[in-house]
Amino acid sequence: MMKEVLSMDHVSFSYQSEEGVTEKAIDDISFAVQQGEWIAIVGHNGSGKSTLAKLMIGLLFPDEGEVNVFIQKLSEANLWAIRSRMGFVFQNPDNQFVGSTVQDDVAFALENNGVPFTDMVTRVHESLAQVNMSNFHDHEPHHLSGGQKQRVAIAGALALKPELLLMDEATSMLDPQGRDEVIRVVEELKTKTGLTVISITHDLEEALLADRIVVMNKGKLLTTGTPTQIFARGDELEAIGLDLPFAMKVSRLLRESGMELFGEHMTEEELVNGLWTSHFSK
């Protein structure tokens, strides 16, 4: 049986505005993440994704319900022990850098956690190798490209040997090449190590790679399912302000123009295969 790594159990959270008005940001959310899964949490701006991320790592605590991580209710008493088993990669990698070189930056959290020097050196080299950044260990982080910076941020998280990697809009500031670099690294790590991944994103192209997708809308859980199940509800996703993957939009436009296409096409490869099949079936 798969082990449950994280669960939200009827979680609600409200903010207090400057005018004293209570605004519910998360409204009765429940779902679970199993060991080795990649879960993508998607939603438009203001859907509650960022608040959900803060609840998962204990920057906020729910008004109602429970956040359970590694089968423990997250609380102030166990917060640091639980965080030590998690890795975080955020939207802007520059905000995470503290070292003057790449290797110093990756080693920073290890040093804070009291990891012995010889073990620390090994972990730094191993984690940089995992993200294909071994040749940059003496480089200054701020001189790297966006994709390289995020790979260093991932290396810093991996050096701690986390059981769960949380990425909060980690590719949103990257160009297409940088985004592809980061996603490829995460895919490879998940395949090789069985790492559990939660990616919070508004990018449905990225969400296609997940095992399951959680769709948020106005603080509520709209639906959850596999990418195929979720994108079968394309009209509903567009209605709440989400942008469908490029291949799906092209496929729809081709059908509307009268072309006969078989099946759904969520990726460009599927679309090409669909066009090929349609052409040679005539």
Rank of each mutant, 00 (worst) to 15 (best):
F117Q: 11
K190G: 11
R151Q: 12
E140W: 09
S172C: 09
E206M: 13
K54G: 00
D94A: 05
E126W: 06
E37M: 10
L189N: 03
E256H: 08
M8P: 00
T122A: 13
K49A: 05
K161Y: 04
L52H: 10
A210I: 03
E260Y: 01
E169T: 07
G146N: 08
I82E: 03
A170E: 05
I39C: 05
E126Y: 00
E256G: 06
M173H: 14
N78W: 07
M266T: 05
E76V: 15
V11E: 03
E264C: 01
L261N: 07
G241M: 08
E111A: 13
V67W: 02
L261V: 10
S17C: 09
I26Y: 01
L60A: 06
V197W: 05
E260M: 03
M1R: 14
K149Y: 09
Q177E: 11
A129G: 08
A77F: 06
N68V: 14
F246L: 12
E268P: 03
A170L: 11
H44T: 09
I213A: 03
G99M: 08
L204D: 02
Q150Y: 05
L208G: 02
F61Y: 15
I230D: 03
E256P: 01
A153M: 13
R83C: 11
H137M: 14
H44R: 14
T191P: 00
L208N: 02
E205F: 02
L222M: 11
Q35L: 07
F246T: 08
M120K: 13
P227W: 10
G225K: 07
H44N: 08
I183M: 15
V124F: 01
F90R: 10
K192P: 00
E37C: 11
I57V: 15
I240M: 06
G219P: 12
T193E: 15
L195P: 00
G58C: 12
P93Q: 12
D63H: 13
D243V: 12
Q35S: 13
D243Q: 12
A109L: 07
E181T: 02
G178T: 10
A53D: 04
G147H: 03
K218C: 02
I240C: 03
M56Y: 04
L271M: 13
I41S: 03
I183L: 15
S251Q: 10
F61W: 10
A25K: 01
S50W: 09
W80L: 15
K3I: 07
P62A: 07
S12N: 10
E169G: 07
T122R: 13
R255S: 05
R151F: 06
A170K: 07
G146P: 07
Q35T: 06
E188L: 10
G219H: 02
R85T: 01
Q130F: 02
S278V: 08
E236I: 04
